[in-house]
Simulated scan of single mutants.
Amino acid sequence: MKAALRHGTRPLRLRKHIRHGLRLCAAFVALSACHHAGAQAGFQLIGPGVQKQANGVLALMGYSVVPDLASSSLSINNAATSNPGIVMSQLGGGFTMSKTFPLYLEGSIAYSRYDPTFVATDGSESREVPTRWNTVAGTIGIGWDFPLTADKELVFRPILNASLGNVSSDLAVAKAVVERAADRQIDFLNGGTLNAYGLGGAVMIDWEHYRETHEIDLELRYTNIYLQTFGGTSASVKGTATAQTANVYARWRAPTGMFAMDRPVRYVLEISHSHYYGNQAGVLGFNHLTTLGTGLELDTSAHEIFVTRVRAVVRYVFGNNVSGVSLGLAASF
């Protein structure tokens, strides 16, 4: 049985379109408050329709529910403030039980924080309304490996996926601002939530070619997960979105000639490319990301340690309007 666990921190610099991406995913709860305010006098929050905002937040959640190395961790700065407007992080992995019982299991859990700013106006005066949104999402998957070669190095892997996510508000400051501006209590701003579930699946081609002189991993995957709000979500912010990602991942490992813990130390070369479709496409100003990585791998299998290999990889990430550097850590079991 083998398994892999990957995580990384990937700061990206957005060169343009940051305002478009952030406002497209703007906080639907603040706009819902405007909806309830109706035609009464006073300040009102302005922006796109509530339904569009709800769908935008779900599209952003799509980056968290799809297992994907390229977007597993993003930190995008707001060009106006140089502070992170979006932070995403994902921890996940998958494994096949054995060659004789090729049941495949995977899982991931992700966290993101989104900091949009809205404007309240009465027609003559405008005030900024800062908001904070925290998202937690998890995805599980179950599949089966169908060998395409006699040695079972190349397999076709269909996977069924299910996801669950929650967006909750952290609006103590914004709530006070809006109350002073509109001179009324806005209950939905205080602890507003959006709950969503996702159902879908993936198809994958996986090639694992392991020799003493080198090791090659190659994965091609297409994932499609449909997200739908449910439960305690307000009626005015119910929405849907489709998370679709196609990605290719390749890794080369070979001995460096050095030894540690009675095993050879390997160097690692990686490349991955992810293309985003559906509601994810362009929501953050890009529709694809590419990573190039290099690092070292320590083999601990000669000793009684829970993990068998530990890797540290430095990656350069780039795509439409974004670029950055990350340090990723991974472990095999």
Rank of each mutant, 00 (worst) to 15 (best):
N161M: 13
T213L: 08
L269V: 10
D183F: 11
P158M: 07
G191A: 09
Y226T: 03
T193A: 10
G198D: 02
F230M: 10
W207K: 15
K175S: 13
S169E: 08
I225Q: 12
T213R: 12
D206K: 13
G257W: 00
P264H: 09
V178G: 00
S169F: 04
A202K: 03
D170E: 04
G165F: 09
T256H: 01
L269F: 03
L220E: 10
Y210A: 04
A181K: 06
D262T: 06
F230E: 04
N224M: 08
L160M: 14
A202Q: 09
A241F: 02
R184W: 03
T240N: 14
K175T: 14
F188M: 03
G165T: 13
K152M: 00
V265M: 11
N166V: 10
N190E: 14
K238S: 05
T233Q: 07
E179V: 15
G200F: 05
D187E: 12
A235N: 08
V265D: 04
R180T: 13
S234P: 02
L199W: 03
V237C: 00
Q228K: 15
M258H: 15
G192I: 00
T193F: 07
Y197K: 06
M261D: 09
L269S: 15
I205F: 13
L154V: 01
W252T: 05
F259L: 10
R253P: 02
A172V: 11
E208I: 13
Y210C: 09
P158H: 10
T149R: 09
